[in-house]
């Protein structure tokens, strides 16, 4: 069983705690930390660097914070599969505008949107990037 570190924003504390209990039951050593707001990337990176080899990180945060922590974790030596995303509904999806690269926050993947930066009409797809923590929005002509 791997050592598990759960990072959670205050608003998802309940979900984080639930995950902690589940993981404990299956025999893992689990640590839960509440994130400060705003999140300081350098501080996070420093904290992650000292975690035991084999630590798995589980995130209960919104999209933008998730992206920031994932990048900090990669810098600290966590690989792609060492970082997991907790199953929570954050209320928004991040849509990557394929025309201007702006990430738009939207409530649904079903409806088309207008990019707030370039005005392009976009159709969200299920093409997901964990690097950007966003779904690709294709242009509608």
């Amino acid at each position: 069983m791997r050592h598990i570190l759960i990072l959670t924003e205050v608003r998802f504390k309940k979900d984080g705690l639930k995950e902690k209990e589940l993981r404990k039951e299956s025999g893992s050593s689990v640590e839960l930390k509440l994130l400060d707001s705003p999140v300081d990337r350098k501080k996070i990176e420093q904290m992650l660097k000292d975690k035991p080899l084999g630590t798995m990180l589980i995130l209960y945060t919104g999209g933008a914070t998730r992206k920031l922590i994932r990048h900090a974790a990669n810098s600290a030596g966590f690989s792609h599969e060492d970082v997991r995303i907790g199953k929570i509904y954050t209320g928004t999806y991040r849509i990557f505008c394929s025309q201007c690269h702006r990430i738009n926050g939207k409530a649904s993947l079903e409806k088309s949107i207008i990019c707030i930066s370039c005005g392009q009409h976009l159709e969200p797809s299920d093409h997901y990037s964990s690097f950007h923590d966003a779904y690709l929005g294709y242009p509608i002509l």
């Binding site: 792609h80 990557f96 394929s98 690269h101 797809s125 093409h127 997901y128 990037s129 964990s130 690097f131 950007h132 690709l136």
Partner: peptide, 17 residues
């Protein structure tokens, strides 16, 4: 396709379309 979108992505996810 968009290089900006796929940078940093896993090989498998790049091609899932």
């Amino acid at each position: 396709w968009s290089l900006a979108f796929v940078q940093g992505m896993e090989f498998k996810s790049i091609h899932n379309q």
